[in-house]
Design a protein around this nucleic acid. Structure first.
Lengths: 195, 195, 195, 195
DNA sequence: CCTTAACCGAGACGGTACGTCGAGTCTTCAA
DNA sequence: TTGAAGACTCGACGTACCGTCTCGGTTAAGG
């Protein structure tokens, strides 16, 4: 993947990278995804437009990195029951989608990704990957406990969870339904449990 | 709402309306939502831009009407069981979201609606309303049959169903999972049934 | 040629035309030809860039029109002698090239015209045409008076006069040599006279 | 002038100098003066941009040196008559201006020089100096022969000759008028001769 | 012989301008 | 008043070049 940086020439200034990411995050929060332009990001970061385009192919990639980076190394929950694990999982999903920058960026971001075949492939492989990994572990434990069958379709469940949270958080209410995570976890858990 | 047309002067040509809707639908299918511009729609419809703006406030409203019009007057399914009704409901939802124009327009459309507070309010009240109505009827019957409790939160269920279908159809696979409707209906039905 | 304006649609606002021409003239004088950008002209004229590009293909055409418009309808001089006519002709040529906007624009303008084959053809046909016309009349009278031969090559004389003035005014001294017109007219007149 | 190189450190590689000059000449011929960029010259020469900027202040200086170097040590013609000498002088001037790189570079080069007060001063002192020197010698001989008066203004004659050739060669015809040198020399000679 | 300083290639840097396009409004003539 | 046409202001797009800077790495002369 990494197409080695080759070390020839002046290396890229990591402070530019940071400044751009910060500027992008702030602008998305302040004016929204659609009104955030590469030019404005560059200006706020005190950087030339080329310096942005040198690192990211366009707005979707830039905002994606700016908004979804803290996502990662959360361990899979282990509460002893499927419902408990799903609740924990959903809570972190809600939290992630509800963060100011994420909530402002998500709909536009997904639209731009969906419109481009190249980017579309990354939704699953990058955007949903960490969640899928945790969900897989949760499912393995649930199978071991005999709560669910071995063949339960992880991707469908993940689409359901993420889609539900996205719709509820991103497209609907001003006010987030606080019971969302609990109710949805309970319903899905019960829905896919054996018997 | 309708700010009546006041009847003085030349009446609006209904053929313009049709031609614009058709042009918009075609363009969304051919070049996608983002690349569909009002100017291009007007040109293809053989119409001035003002004639478009006189009838719709902008691209989101126009495309929404162009893409989601046949939705409406389908009666609520009545198969005798909650799972059956949900399956039927989901099948029509999948069909609706999977139609060429809808699949192409949905992500961008939702992004534009979500970005505008005024439009955002219409997602529930217009976009989801027909589905909600049918779901309510299905739930009433299920309550009457004793399958589910009276207080089951319709909106959350609807977000879950629509979100799942949207994610799966609009953002993910080229190839739609044919089992989606059946599996999801079964899981949700079981998840919200009493006991 | 004229590809008739067809009268359909909103006609071009002549005030925009004027404002752009004025802004271009001012900018050329203030910052020079090279530093005059279409964007800056549009901004100063209070006009969108498209409005400029709709009327002119680029900077050379725009500045040419801005700087050389008052050139035209001066009648050919008729002093009774070739030397006198040439002096008058050269005086107006010097005046024309020495005007603030013209002096600032000429070198860059000729460079841009010379670099483009399409524009290059216009140097003779538009830029030099009015002078050539007057020179032709002057020569006809001189032939009638028997001062010069009938076949005297007008184009070469014109290149010589214009080239000399351009070099002297545009490329050389801050301070224009006041005797230029008189001396050059005398030399050329004597040089091409019979005997 | 030369701001001596102080001898410490690695000396400049003379092959870089040559490579840059060659690359500049080629590019000017191939794509023209305006489209010749320092970056492209450096790339073609296999050299870093700084290596160019270390030796020349910018494109005008570089291209000037690249295009006008063979100009110099031609001796002043001595045919026995002013008209003959001027013809020879003009022939070499035409040849110089008509060379591929010179013809391509001259208009833009003069424009850039004229736009910068510092460079503008060099037009006379460097670009025209060799020609002026030869013209002075020619004039001295003509004065000695009694052909012209002692005070004949060399600079004006030089402007006239150079301007005429520049206009004719650089700005006008594809096809150079072969009689240019002869006709112009004859006219000017006759024009400035005594009686 | 080993520092020191200028050179070198590569390429990132902050800027500025390019010419095109879409948004939404305005202005004309004609129906 | 509607309608087609198209001009209007505005602002973003992604690219190219400017001239400077910062890397790692030569290549000499001077101590």
């Amino acid at each position: 993947m990494s197409s080695f940086p080759s070390s020839r020439g002046r290396p890229r200034d990591p402070r530019s990278h940071e400044a751009i990411i910060s500027a992008a995050t702030e602008l998305v929060i302040e004016v929204g995804y659609a009104a955030t332009s590469i030019g404005a990001v560059a200006a706020r970061a005190g950087v030339g437009k080329d310096t942005v385009y040198r690192r990211w192919r366009g707005k979707p990639e830039l905002v994606f990195e700016a908004v979804f980076t803290t996502t990662d190394h959360v361990p899979a929950p282990d509460t002893g029951t499927l419902a408990g694990d799903l609740t924990a999982l959903l809570r972190s999903l809600v939290e992630e989608f509800h963060a100011p920058a994420a909530a402002a960026a998500l709909p536009g971001l997904l639209a731009d990704f969906a419109a481009d075949p190249v980017l579309k492939a990354r939704i699953r492989s990058q955007f949903l990957a960490p969640s899928k990994e945790r969900l897989l572990i949760v499912f393995e434990r649930a199978v071991a406990r005999g709560e669910i069958a071995a063949g339960t379709p992880v991707d469908l469940v993940l689409d359901t969870l993420a889609g539900a949270v996205f719709f509820h958080v991103g497209l609907v209410g001003e006010h987030l339904d606080r019971q969302l995570a609990g109710w949805l976890a309970a319903a899905i858990a019960k829905g896919i449990e054996i018997r």
